[in-house]
């Protein structure tokens, strides 16, 4: 179990991570979601002992990452955003070095190297220099080193960045598989990725933790209404008359033209039931619905709502200042 309490990191006057606290339970896949420069990498670097915190503490199964660094680090496997690979090594030589540095020796070292090579499917390239491997295989070698020593927690910083679509799917499958035997924390700024892999999502914005829940609960958490878009031959007044008696309609935005287009916001969970009522309402008045489309709130809406529209501009500026 990982406990992060009051974590703050300042670079001069810039606050990169601002009083972040959360608890990670065993045996789940956690997604750290946030735009570029939100503070995800900084949080991960502090959690793995690569960076000091200005304030706050990180405890890995009770071991403080700063006070009992070696004990805590033995429980963590970390893959930074850029895989830390020695290009002249072969994967086998590289894994041998990392394994020895993690305290593995002899048959145990050999056994674990074979196991992680098998898990990450790099067996056929293990004797080639890392410099000659594709980006996807380099990423796999990076994940393999994180798995050595059989750590309880695997932390992966944007593991799919820069990979082609097939490699992305392969790495995602690998993360899912790892989630069965380890606690996995990985960061991403791609929402669909987090939605597809994670049991729990932590949304980070401007260095703050702004949401931490299961993806489906996050959707409930936000009261952003579902939306129905209709195109009809009815005029604005007629539309308002037809919809006047209907519950669950919270707002509408009408644009008149040859056909009238209306954006109808509803607060009912069953969007199909409301659309059915709208359909029969218009039919009853003899008005045609030439188009009707439904838009459900997804994680992307929650993300944009929570992080704010101007986020990415600010994030880029913060990133530049940090560098």
């Amino acid at each position: 179990m990982i406990s992060v309490e009051g974590l703050t990191k300042c670079y001069g006057d810039i606050v990169a991570v601002d009083n972040v606290s959360f608890q990670i339970e065993e045996g789940h896949v956690y997604g750290l979601l946030g735009p570029n420069g939100a503070g995800k990498t900084t949080i991960m670097n502090i959690m793995t002992g690569c960076l000091s915190a200005t304030e706050g503490s990180v405890r890995i199964y009770g071991h403080d990452i700063f006070e009992e660094a070696n004990e805590a680090k033995r429980l963590i496997g970390y893959l930074p955003e850029q895989p830390p690979l020695y290009m002249t090594d072969t994967p086998l030589e590289y894994l041998k070095f990392v394994g020895e540095a993690k305290g593995l020796r002899g048959a145990k070292l050999k056994g674990q190297i074979d196991e992680v090579i098998h898990k990450t499917k790099i067996g056929h390239v293990k004797g080639r220099p890392i410099s000659s491997l594709s980006k996807g295989y380099k990423q796999r070698v990076g994940i393999a080193q994180a798995l050595l020593g059989n750590p309880k927690v695997i932390i992966l910083d944007e593991p799919t960045v820069g990979l082609d679509p097939i490699q992305i799917v392969e790495i995602r499958d690998l993360i899912k598989e790892l989630g069965r035997s380890h606690t996995v924390i990985f960061s991403s700024h791609i929402l669909s990725e987090v939605q597809a892999i994670c049991d729990q999502v932590l949304i980070i914005s401007k260095g703050k933790l702004i949401a931490f829940d299961e993806p489906k609960n996050l959707e409930k958490l936000l009261l952003a209404p579902n939306e129905i878009l209709i195109t009809t031959d009815a005029r604005e007044k007629e539309i308002k008359d037809i919809l006047a008696d209907m519950d669950h309609i919270v707002d509408m935005d009408i644009e008149e033209g040859d056909y009238t287009v209306a954006h109808i916001k509803i607060d009912h969970e069953d969007i199909y039931e409301v659309s059915r009522q709208i359909f029969f309402g218009f039919a009853h008045k003899g008005k045609a619905l030439v188009e009707m489309s439904l838009k459900k709130t997804d994680l992307e809406d929650i993300f944009i709502e929570l992080t704010g529209g101007s986020e990415s501009q600010e994030a880029t500026e913060r990133e530049e200042v940090k560098q």
Binding site: G49, K73, P84
Partner: peptide, 8 residues
Amino acid sequence: QLLYSLPI
């Protein structure tokens, strides 16, 4: 970064 994250 690897050296910092290893238990050495």
